[in-house]
Design a protein around this nucleic acid. Structure first.
Lengths: 112, 112
DNA sequence: CCAGAAGTACGATGGCTGTCAAACTTCGAT
DNA sequence: ATCGAAGTTTGACAGCCATCGTACTTCTGG
């Protein structure tokens, strides 16, 4: 299992899938935190209001939609935002969402 | 019933709600068609792969999220994209989505 | 070698929501 | 005053998906 899980190529990105991934507040929070941090972040490094197993599920959905890239470092699973590829395929989308999340108090940013 | 139904003020727009509205392919198709047409369109003027009652449901969701404005003309219910207000509150979001829908073959544009 | 940390896998469950058909309401023409 | 067109309402139903706990796997540090 240790090895890197399957990631879609950017040529396979699908808008429907991406939106389904981003419509969940927890997942959007992950993307937002990742974007804000500017660095890759381990699963445990996020502030999420759900159990570990649920978090795993969300990371999987994000990965399969092509939003993040995951790789292992020791026992930690690191997560990287696939910004360049996303911007290439869906120009402006990520930025608009991140901006929107910042502007509106919204249900983003989990826990304190 | 004839009278205009309740519409949220742009100050009440909520990102979560907007995304929940736009994640459905049928609803996104409505928005896309509305954007492409440039004019207000009656409910019956859309090309949708669902029954009338389901369509009514989708229009309601879009209206309550603030994406469209609805008003009656005779027995027809007209739909207008609230573009300016949306652009104001969520800059770039609508454009990014419409562009993305055009670029990727995707599940948008219903029927032929 | 062992304990613990970091995740994953696996069911199970509950709630939401997209879908439809059928009956009803309104408005416009004829 | 009637018929049809355009939507709405209501209720039912099915499928999906976010969530959790528990058990399991792996890797690291002592």
């Amino acid at each position: 299992m240790g090895r890197t899980p399957p990631h879609p190529d950017s040529s396979q990105f699908d808008l429907q899938r991406v939106l389904e991934a981003l419509v969940d507040p927890v997942r959007r929070s992950i993307v937002t935190q990742l974007d804000a941090s500017g660095e890759d972040v381990a699963c445990g490094g996020f502030d999420l209001p759900v159990s570990k197993s649920t978090a795993t599920h969300h990371f999987t959905v994000l990965r399969e939609a092509g939003l993040i890239r995951q790789y292992y470092v020791g026992t930690s699973r690191m997560n990287a935002l696939r910004r360049a590829e996303l911007d290439d395929v869906f120009p402006g989308l990520l930025d608009a969402l991140v901006r929107a999340g910042r502007a509106r108090p919204g249900h983003d940013e989990a826990r304190t």
